[in-house]
């Protein structure tokens, strides 16, 4: 008996549905938790790109 025969006889149709629920559920949990995070907790992270030194940039170019 081949693997595909064994798998075919197992009723796996619920697997994709279960996976959908699990993945969606975890995502919703993370999303809910993220939205509940206090804004100041992430304030320093949000400004990280603005903290680096971009070096000399000169004046605005010619028009």
């Amino acid at each position: 008996m081949r693997l595909s025969d064994i798998m075919s006889r197992m009723d796996l149709t619920i697997w994709p549905v279960a996976a959908l629920v699990i993945f969606l559920g975890i995502f919703i949990l993370i999303a809910m938790r993220t939205m509940k995070r206090p804004g100041d907790e992430l304030a320093s992270e949000a400004t990280l790109p603005l903290q680096d030194d971009t070096g000399p940039i000169g004046e605005p170019g010619r028009n």
Binding site: F23, L24, T34, M35, R37, A43, P49, L50
Partner: peptide, 25 residues
């Protein structure tokens, strides 16, 4: 975008959700 606009991203929280949505979904 924050560099060009010289201001932080509007919602860092939303960016986290944005990231996980792409990974999970």
């Amino acid at each position: 975008l924050p560099k060009a606009a010289d201001r932080p991203v509007f919602s860092y929280r939303l960016s986290i959700i944005h990231f996980w949505s792409l990974v999970f979904i």
